[in-house]
Simulated assay, not measured.
Amino acid sequence: MAKPVRSLPGSARRGGTRADISRSLPEETPVAITFDGATQAVMMATPADIEDFALGFALSEGILGGPQDIAGFEVVEHGAGIEARFWLAADRSAEVKARRRAMLGPVGCGLCGIDSLDQALRPLPVLRDPAWQVTAAEVAGATEALRRHQPLHDQTRAVHAAGFLEPGRGITCAREDVGRHNALDKLIGALVRQGTDPAAGAVVLTSRVSVEMVQKTVMAGSPVLIAVSAPTATALGLAREAGLSVAAFARGDGYDIYSHPGRIAGED
């Protein structure tokens, strides 16, 4: 498998001086996700945790309902990129073929290639209130806690992360990628593969809260989304309708809460 980080030479200019440098930079590799031999999506991604990425993408996009839909899986590396191959159970295979869509997207856009405007704001399930609450201190400190689980960021300063915050336990799982959508898909896939229910905790992001990040979090079943940056107005509208709590600008000393505040202890 290709390495996720590569060291390359350059020349730095600072304060009127010039110096030769070598920087650790993240890789981007085309990853094709296929179902029964047909390509469903090609995304540029960091070449690490590919099985997590493929499974998380398939679940968050509603292509698969769960691991029970998978008859087989393999990762095949080609000269031009990586292929993540799913072989599906017979009943799911027919359904996927009926709704197949091709998608080719750069890391900055999670909606590239959808074949109708209706899919951009697709209907979402409504999340139930969990039996747990997260504390205000956990929400405020979530993004800083996630920083301690970002080795690729420490090397490159150029990748996003998504983490899973379990109340009372902190960040228990995290994944990184050059694409914020990819990092979230990798996290979802990792949780499902290790048998952790995404409904048992909150998703934490190093990015803004956009429509597709809300969609993926809701599809995974996590009832709380915490981010270091701002949400969009449209994303908040979807979050409110779907029962998702959104806490933004979580930066150590506090946070903003925009929807369903009751999942945070002490909030009305």
Rank of each mutant, 00 (worst) to 15 (best):
K3T: 12
R6F: 07
A12E: 02
D20K: 08
I21V: 15
S24Y: 05
S24R: 14
P30Q: 04
I33Y: 08
T34K: 12
F35S: 11
D36P: 06
G37A: 12
A38T: 13
A38Y: 13
T39F: 01
Q40C: 08
Q40P: 02
M44H: 13
T46W: 02
E51A: 15
D52I: 00
F53R: 10
L55M: 11
G56I: 11
A58Y: 03
I63R: 04
G72N: 05
F73S: 00
V76T: 11
G79D: 13
G81V: 04
R85C: 09
D91R: 13
A94I: 11
E95G: 00
K97N: 11
A98I: 07
A98Y: 05
R99D: 13
G108E: 10
G108I: 00
G108T: 06
G110K: 00
G113S: 02
L117S: 13
L117A: 14
D118K: 08
L127Q: 07
R128W: 00
P130E: 08
L146E: 05
L152D: 06
Q155L: 12
Q155C: 01
T156N: 10
A158Q: 14
T172R: 09
A174N: 10
E176W: 13
D177S: 15
A183N: 09
L184N: 03
R193G: 12
G201T: 14
A202F: 02
V209A: 02
Q215G: 00
K216I: 01
T217Y: 03
G221V: 09
S222H: 07
P223G: 06
V224P: 04
V228E: 15
A235G: 04
A235S: 10
L236H: 03
A239G: 09
R240N: 13
E241R: 14
V246W: 03
R251T: 07
G254I: 11
D256Q: 05
I257S: 01
P261C: 04
E267R: 14
D268N: 11
